[in-house]
Every structure is written in structure tokens, then in C-alpha cells.
Simulated scan of single mutants.
Amino acid sequence: MKKLATIALSALIVVALGIKPVQGQEGDNSNSFKQQFSQHFDYASRVLSLAKAMPAEKYSWRPEEGVSSVEEVYTHIARYNFYYPENSLGIPAPEDIDVENIESITGKEEVVAILERSIEYVKEIVRKMDESKLKQETELYGRTVNGQAVLMQLITHKSEHVGQSIAYARMNGVVPPWSE
């Protein structure tokens, strides 16, 4: 019995030593919403490497008539990277960005450039965003939500189209760079 108690106590000590501080403890920022958002956003941003790997001649390809082309998917992602912060968080897009017409951009170089710029824009505004903005109520698609919900929608939207982009790439014989 004493041996079992010693083993249990040893296991408890090992587990306790491995536990990270709870969010909000001084000096620990690894579990903050902004940190978690950034990790998920960066993961979804791998779509940029896919956009760069896709051959320019495939940018106008679409699986069938009436469905978004490769470049339309990438510009759609870029548009909403600017749209959600502007429309729901009151953070204006850069003056030289015409949010309403981003989806009309064509050509690999231009599409990759606007996608990359939109990703960097989101990273920058979230990095600079005051924590109070995350809790502030706003509107998103007619619902009252907080800033965190808007940023979560941004990731959800982007991730949906990452999946679509992977399917498009594979249908065109392009292996996502992270799968090679």
C-alpha cells in the first residue's frame, strides 16, 4: 500500500510540475485570446504558400461554370481579411485598399500581393489591438457579438477557403507545400 501511495504521489508531482500557469498570471501571455488567435490565423495563412505554389496559368481555373476560380478564392479571402475588421470592429482598411473591389483583382502576382498584404494587415491590427476591443459589443451579420467573435469568424471564413484552395490545387496536380 505504501508503495502505491509513493507512486501516486510521484505521478502527482510530475503532473503538477508540467502544468503551465493559468492565463492571467503575471508574465504569462501564452493563453491570451490574441495569442491563440494569432496561432490559428498563422496556421490558416499557409494558404499564401499554396497561392505562391499554384501556377499562374491555373489562376483562372474553376471546377465548373458559376463556381469561383482559383484567383477569386484568394481575393475573396483577402477581401474579408480587410472587411471584417472595418465593418465590425471599426478598424478602417488602409486608404489605398478598395475593399469592395478586391475580388476583381486578377493575375498571380497581383492576387498573391493582395492576399499577403491582407494577412499582414490582420496580424498587425490584432497585435496592436487593445484587449478592451475584444470584449466590446459590435454587429456581425445582424447579430450582436464581441470583438473576439469577429476575429473567430475571420479564422473560420479563411479556413473554409483554405480547404477549398487545397481541393483546387490537388485537382490541378499541385501538392500543398506543407504536404511535400
Rank of each mutant, 00 (worst) to 15 (best):
163 G>L: 09
138 T>A: 01
133 K>I: 00
124 E>H: 00
80 Y>Q: 09
18 G>Y: 04
57 E>T: 13
136 Q>F: 03
10 S>W: 01
24 G>Y: 03
68 S>D: 10
113 A>I: 05
105 I>V: 14
57 E>M: 08
40 H>V: 01
133 K>F: 07
149 A>K: 15
141 Y>D: 14
171 M>F: 04
67 V>L: 14
120 E>W: 00
5 A>F: 10
177 P>H: 03
144 T>A: 13
174 V>F: 07
72 E>C: 02
47 V>D: 05
111 V>D: 03
107 G>T: 06
91 I>F: 06
132 S>T: 14
81 N>V: 02
69 S>Q: 08
178 W>V: 03
20 K>N: 07
76 H>S: 12
163 G>N: 10
176 P>G: 04
8 A>C: 12
34 K>Y: 08
102 I>D: 02
78 A>S: 14
167 A>M: 14
131 E>F: 11
3 K>L: 13
114 I>D: 02
42 D>G: 05
136 Q>P: 03
96 D>K: 01
16 A>N: 12
46 R>D: 13
97 I>Q: 04
70 V>A: 09
29 N>E: 11
89 L>G: 05
111 V>R: 05
16 A>Y: 12
125 I>C: 01
99 V>Y: 05
124 E>A: 07
99 V>F: 04
163 G>W: 15
71 E>F: 04
75 T>A: 13
154 L>T: 12
165 S>N: 06
172 N>G: 02
81 N>H: 14
159 S>C: 10
71 E>R: 07
45 S>N: 13
152 M>D: 11
53 A>N: 09
27 G>M: 03
92 P>K: 14
109 E>L: 03
17 L>I: 06
100 E>Y: 07
99 V>L: 01
